[in-house]
Nucleic acid binder design. Sequence first.
DNA 1: CGGCCAATGCAATTTACGTCA
DNA 2: TATGACGTAAATTGCATTGGC
Length: 255
Amino acid sequence: MDSRHLLFDPSAYHQAGMLRSPLSRGSTWMMRGEEIPRRLPFFGLPEELYDDEFDDGHSPGKKRRLTPEQVYLLEETFEAENKLKPERKSELAKKLGLQPRQVAVWFQNRRARWKTKQLERDFDLLKASYNTLRSNYDSILKENNNLKSEVLSLTEKLQRSNGLPTAGPKMDLLGVDVGLISAQQLSSGGGGSAVVNESNLSNLVNSGDSYLPNHDGSCRGGDDHSQSYFSDVFLAAEQQHQEDQEEALGWWVWS
DNA sequence: CGGCCAATGCAATTTACGTCA
DNA sequence: TATGACGTAAATTGCATTGGC
């Protein structure tokens, strides 16, 4: 175990005659030769361990929720700075009548809560963006199909009027084999006809507090771990998109 | 430059409180 | 009123990272 994690300084335990049992692998403390559970209730400490500077107005013995006033000030501070410098932490703790460690824990948990909420918001935005893209894509697909039918119909008409057989490779009006139109030409959105609007997603990703990866692969909202949070989602969406395109192109080429 | 140590952060988990049926 | 289930805040644990020595 790591003593820094404890709300109470181990030296205080030591001074109070409490030593960590070397045999218990951290599961108990020794107090004046008597073994006691290590997991003490937060305030359930012997009176001599009670920090004189710490007085939240409650008697020791219970883990108390922070008062609305304490939470308000903590929230206000979190709004301004979501990580505290040691001096600021001490200052705030004093102001609130809390242990600096309690303030640190509160900020830790608050960051975790913020991250969870942020991930939920990001997910919703991503989902909405995906739905829009999907809808646009479906429209384009439909339009492509209509245009293709039109081209074939006109080509056949032209061939008939020229007395040419309609069987064989399917050529468009310019004599280009329709089946040879490359997947690349279609997927590149060439000809400037692409309707897909990527600005929403770009704005989302580049707008700041988000766990979505930026174009350079970084994330502004979180630490190094967070860049992978949505990579799977992007990957899955990309794969699905490719599959859809292959399916559509296959239909185009083979029909 | 690499090893050690302390400080700090985060994810995962546990504990305990408050609420509600 | 008691109580059990449940959600969540507070706290702990273990590991990773960073910076100073």
